[in-house]
Every structure is written in structure tokens, then in C-alpha cells.
Amino acid sequence: MAREIVLDTETTGFDPKTGDRMIEVGCIEIDDLLPTGRTFHRLIHPERDIPAGAIAVHGITLDKLRDAPKFAEVAADLLEFIGDAPVIAHNAAFDRAFLNHELGLCGSAIIEDARWIDTLQMAQMRFPGMANSLDALCRRFKISLTERTLHGALIDARLLSDVYLELKGGKARSLELVSVTTDTGGQDGPRRHGARPRPLAPRLTEAEREVHAAFVEAQLGDQALWLRA
């Protein structure tokens, strides 16, 4: 396996060809199907108004973006973060259209179709005829949605990274032995994943220990290998 980037965007609407623009982008880096802890997150001024219907989805108003950079100002940093990695998105055609439109507007090279991995298509092949939205997949894979009250690019990218790993075959998150702190550049607080589980406290009573010791002595005596020095 290799380095991959999970990406999500928030926008002013549904179609960049009719003037809609990107207002937020969030990326999660994974390597060999494990999150590395590296992220990229930017709010972006769309240089236009944001319709009420879009605000109801993501909660981002034009006032919140008053001091945000324009896309051309973040394009180089975003492309550097993505590098030559495959880009994973849910309903990838949507995010691809917006990202490549924005890249085209500022004269940057687009990300070719062949580099995109669509988790919606993956889910539809695995769960045909079922609801395969990001929310539905999170519920199906028992991925917590508690931190998500509105859509947000970085939050959704985090959720999608968990969904993608499940679609690739799943992994026991409780058995992860590494602890990774996610640095979101001040947008969100540090987030820790995969702390090593501590052993359970012993549940044997002293009386049970004595009974077991007597049994071992009676049955094995000094033949008990684990008692030898």
C-alpha cells in the first residue's frame, strides 16, 4: 500500500459551472491504511454570496469568511499536501468538479480523474440497494457521529477515512497500538486516536488463588513448568 489523501469540501452550492465556489477543504493523510496524523484544513473566501440553503448544511456564513484567503492563496499549499497521492472522496465527482474548477481558475494543474477513488461507488458495490450516504455508512460501521452537528470538511474527511478503511476490509480500532495526535493548524484541538488498551485488572479473589495453588500442588507438584526458577 502507499500514501493516500482523504478529501472533503464544502461549497456554496451544487455546480461550479453555474458560479458556485468552494468555501472549505479538509484532508486527512493515510499511509498503508493507517492515519498518519497529518491534516490540511482551510476556510476559503468564495468571492460571492452563500445561499441560505447551503448555510443550513454547513453553517458557514460569509461573515465567518471575512478574513479567509481566496482559493488562489491556498492552492499551492493544498497541492503540496496532496502531492502525487490518490485522492479519496465520497461521491468523488462532486469534490473533483469543484477542486479542479478552482485549480483551473487560478491556473494550476488539475488532479486527473484516474487519481480519484470514490467511496460511494465502493459502498454501492458492497451494499447494493442500501443507503450509502456518509452518515448511513458511519452508522453501519458503528463510527461515532457525536462530534458532527453540521457538515464540515475536516470532520467529514475524518469520518470518511474511517469509512474507507472499513470498506477496504476493516481493522480493529481497539487494537491499534499507536497513538497519533492530529495537528489541524489551530482550527480544531488536538485529537488522539488509537491509545494502547490497558490490561484488565485481575478478578481472582485471594480464596480462589489459594484453591488454584492447592490444585496445582496436588496434581503437578514440582512438574509445573511455570513455577520453575
Rank of each mutant, 00 (worst) to 15 (best):
L105S: 06
L137T: 00
G186N: 05
H212G: 05
G169N: 09
E210G: 00
A195D: 08
L103I: 01
H101L: 02
V180A: 09
E208L: 05
V163N: 11
A201S: 11
R148E: 04
K168H: 15
R115S: 10
M122E: 14
G107Q: 14
G194F: 03
A97P: 01
H101R: 09
I155E: 13
A224M: 13
E208I: 00
A172W: 09
G194S: 13
G129F: 10
L145M: 10
L225D: 10
L220R: 06
A207D: 14
P202Y: 06
I155G: 09
Q219A: 14
G107N: 08
I110D: 14
L137M: 14
I110Q: 15
I117K: 12
L154R: 00
P199T: 03
K168I: 07
R126E: 14
T146N: 15
R198M: 10
R148S: 05
H101Y: 13
L160T: 02
E102F: 07
E176G: 06
R158T: 05
A218W: 07
T146R: 11
K168N: 15
I111R: 14
G169V: 05
L150W: 11
L220A: 08
D95W: 03
G186D: 12
F127I: 01
A157D: 00
A123G: 04
Y164A: 06
G169C: 09
A218R: 15
T184R: 01
D113W: 13
E217R: 15
Q124M: 14
L175H: 07
I143A: 06
A136M: 06
V163R: 13
S133M: 05
E112G: 07
Y164N: 00
S133F: 06
A214K: 15
E147G: 05
V216G: 02
A213M: 04
T182Q: 05
A213K: 10
L220M: 09
P202E: 07
A123L: 07
E176S: 12
L159S: 04
F127M: 06
A136T: 03
A195V: 03
S174A: 12
E147N: 14
L220I: 01
K168Q: 15
T119M: 12
A109R: 15
P128Q: 07
D183S: 02
A201Y: 04
D222R: 08
H101M: 03
G170K: 02
A195T: 03
M125F: 07
A224N: 09
I143M: 07
T149D: 10
G189Q: 04
L167D: 05
E147Y: 09
V178C: 10
A172G: 02
P199C: 03
L165T: 01
L160I: 05
R139Y: 04
C106W: 08
H101V: 00
G186A: 08
Q124T: 04
R140K: 12
R96V: 01
L105F: 01
Q121S: 15
I111H: 08
E102Q: 14
F215T: 01
H151Y: 11
A136W: 05
A123E: 09
L150R: 15
L154V: 00
A109E: 15
L134E: 10
A172Q: 13
C138K: 04
R191D: 01
R203Q: 10
R191N: 02
R191F: 08
H193M: 12
R192C: 00
T149A: 11
A157G: 01
R139H: 07
L145D: 02
S161L: 02
Q219L: 06
R198N: 04
R140P: 02
L145T: 02
G104M: 10
T182G: 00
Q124W: 09
L159N: 08
L103C: 06
